[in-house]
């Protein structure tokens, strides 16, 4: 069986290292916070202006002044710090955030990322995604290997408008883990029950040894 959303999030959490400042995107990446390994402390950044993001509040304790970048009510922690949006993206662009874990629509074998726009469909905007991929030390993408039509999302080159070029370091899909290396993608790990043949058949991008 390929990995489900939670198994993908759990696998992404293994990329975390003690002491990291990390930004988690919306969707599956948000689930990563449920799987932070024992003995590892990471500080979550929310790009609307917060380091040290805590869990959702208990009912009745929601605070309209305390939300995450997905506009969800959250809580603070003892080490929380707040700052304005210019300072927030200063630390992102300035390379102070060690890792971003983001969702994607398409990733290419050279690490190009498309995750903000489908032409002809509803255009919502890139939010902070372009800044994150441009500035963060290591970009980990978590996504399904294929789209809902069964077409590979791991491509030779992206077809959708890009969020950044050559920015992705690691791709975690429901079928396995791929690293972006010179010349293509290197298979690091297969999901339980997925064969290398299955993954190769589902991947348009070049796989290298």
């Amino acid at each position: 069986m390929p990995w489900d959303r939670n198994q993908m999030a759990a696998r992404a959490a293994k990329e975390l290292r003690d002491g990291m400042y990390v930004n988690l995107g919306i969707g599956i990446p948000t689930l990563v916070s449920n799987y932070i390994p024992d003995g590892i402390t990471v500080t979550l950044q929310s790009e609307n202006g917060m380091l040290g993001m805590g869990p959702f509040p208990f009912a009745g304790e929601e605070d309209a002044d305390l939300i995450n970048a997905g506009k969800q009510t959250i809580t603070e922690l003892p080490h929380t710090a707040y700052f304005d949006s210019a300072a927030s993206f200063g630390m992102i662009r300035g390379g102070k955030i060690a890792m971003a874990i983001l969702g994607a629509m398409e990733v290419s074998e050279s690490g190009d990322l498309a995750n903000w726009m489908i032409p002809g469909k509803l255009v919502k905007g890139m939010g902070g995604a372009m800044d994150l991929v441009a500035g963060v030390g290591r970009v980990v993408v978590v996504m399904d290997h294929a789209n809902k039509h069964g077409e590979s999302k791991v491509l030779k080159s992206c077809t959708l408008p890009l969020t950044g070029t050559g920015v992705v370091d690691l791709i975690i899909t429901n079928m396995g883990v791929l690293e972006v290396v010179p010349g293509g993608l290197k298979l690091l790990e297969l999901a339980d029950g997925v064969t290398e043949g299955d993954l190769r058949a589902a991947t348009e991008a070049t796989l290298v040894n």
Partner: peptide, 22 residues
Amino acid sequence: QYLSGELELEFNPQGTLAERMR
């Protein structure tokens, strides 16, 4: 309004927008 052409939209990456203001 945007899809009907009544409203113009200039997308800015969030950090770029913040820094443009700053």
